[in-house]
Design a protein around this nucleic acid. Structure first.
Lengths: 190, 190
DNA sequence: TCTGACTAGTCACTTTCTTGAGTATGATGC
DNA sequence: GCATCATACTCAAGAAAGTGACTAGTCAGA
C-alpha cells in the first residue's frame, strides 16, 4: 500500500477527476512518485470504496462526464497516520544508469546518444518546473513564500524536482563527454 | 523485463553468488536500481535457464556451499541489445516526499524528524560512496582515471549516487528548517 | 551457554505494475 | 475532409515485485 498515499497527498489540493489526477502525476507528483493512469483510476475506486475519498459525478456537455474526488476526513486521518510511520528509503530505477554501468564492456555510441537526449529532457523539465515554482509562489519572493505561504507542500517537492533534474542534466552531459573522449582516444590508438 | 539487465550489468565485474550480488545491490547498484535478495535469486535462476548466465557450484567448508554466476556471451549480447533500445524515463518513489507534499495540511513534527533522519542517512552514504570512489580509482586522480581507467562504468554510476545523496541531504535539511520555522511562527501567533 | 549476526539460500503467497486494447465525443490542424 | 489530439474513462491478462517465513551451519561476544 503505497500509491494510495501519493494519491491522497495529491488530492489534498482540491477536487480532481482521474484524468486530471493523471495530469497532476505527470507534472508535479512525478517528482516523487511515478504511476500510470490505469493505476490511478483503480486506486481512486478502491479509496472511494474504503471511504478515504468521496466522489461525485459531474455532467458535462460537449465532453464526457467525469467523477471528481476529494479527500474525506478518514482520508486525511489515514495520511496523518502515514506521516507518523517510518519512511522507506527512496526507491530509484533507471535504465540509463544500467547502461552506463555496463558502458566500457559494451558499445558506447548508443549510450552517449541517450545520455545527451536525457540531458535535453531534463533541461526541459528544469525550465518547466522553474516556471511552475514561479506560478506557485505568485508574486512573492521565495523566502517570504516559504515563511508565510499557506500551502507550501507542492512547492517543496517541486524544489526537489528541479534540483534532481538539474543534477541529472549535469551528470548526463559530463558522462557523455567522458565516454566520448574515451571513444576518440581509442580510435587514435587503434 | 528490467531487473535482468541490472543483474547482467552488475555481474559484468566478475563472478558473484546470489548472496554477494545482493550485497553489491546494497552498495553500488542501489544508486540506480533497487531490488530485494529474493528477486535476485529468482532472476539469477531465470537468466541461467535462458543461457544468459552460467553458474557453477562452489563447495565450501565451514559455511554453506554457493553458486557463482558469470555473464555468458549471450548475456553480453543481450546487454548490448538493451543498450540500443530507448531508455525509459527514470523511475522514482519516495515516501518521505509524499509526506512533505501533504505537509501543511497534516501535522509536521513527525515529518521534520524524518527529514533530519534521512539527512543523516544520506550523509553517511555520501561518505561511504566517496570512499568507494577513492578505492575504485586506486591512487589515480579522477580525471586521469576517467580518461584511462579500464573499467569506469561502476565509477560513473557511483558519481551519480554521491551527487544524488548530497542533494537529498541538502534538501532534507533545508525543508526541515523551513517547516520548523513555520511551526514556531504559528506557535507565536497562537 | 545462549544470543545474535553472517553466510547462503528456498518457497509460497499476494499485491502491484505494465501492456495493450477498446469506447465515445468534440475540437483543432493540414 | 481526414487525421490527430484532448477529454474521460474501462477492462483483462500477464509479468514483475514485495512480504514473510523457513532451513542450517559458523562464529563472536556477553
Amino acid at each position: 500500500m503505497a500509491l494510495r498515499h501519493a494519491v491522497l497527498a495529491a488530492l489534498l489540493d482540491g477536487e480532481y477527476s482521474g484524468y486530471q489526477l493523471a495530469k497532476a502525476f505527470d507534472i508535479g507528483v512525478a517528482n516523487f512518485w511515478h504511476a500510470l493512469p490505469q493505476q490511478l483510476y483503480a486506486e481512486l475506486a478502491k479509496l472511494e470504496k474504503e471511504g478515504l475519498l468521496s466522489g461525485r459525478q459531474v455532467l458535462q456537455e460537449g465532453r464526457p462526464n467525469k467523477r471528481l474526488f476529494r479527500v474525506t476526513e478518514a482520508g486525511r486521518a489515514e495520511l496523518e497516520a502515514f506521516a507518523e510511520t517510518v519512511a522507506k528509503p527512496s526507491f530509484i530505477r533507471d535504465d540509463l544508469m544500467v547502461k552506463v554501468q555496463a558502458a566500457d564492456l559494451i558499445g558506447t555510441a548508443a549510450v552517449i546518444a541517450q545520455l545527451e537526449e536525457r540531458a535535453e529532457v531534463s533541461k526541459g523539465k528544469v525550465e518547466f518546473l522553474t516556471e511552475l515554482l514561479r506560478t506557485l509562489r505568485g508574486g512573492a519572493e521565495e523566502d517570504e513564500y516559504l515563511r508565510h505561504g499557506e500551502r507550501i507542500g507542492p512547492y517543496l517537492t517541486c524544489l526537489r524536482g528541479v534540483a534532481f533534474e538539474q543534477e541529472t542534466r549535469d551528470w548526463c552531459l559530463r558522462i557523455a563527454a567522458v565516454l566520448r573522449a574515451r571513444q576518440e582516444n581509442r580510435a587514435e590508438h587503434a
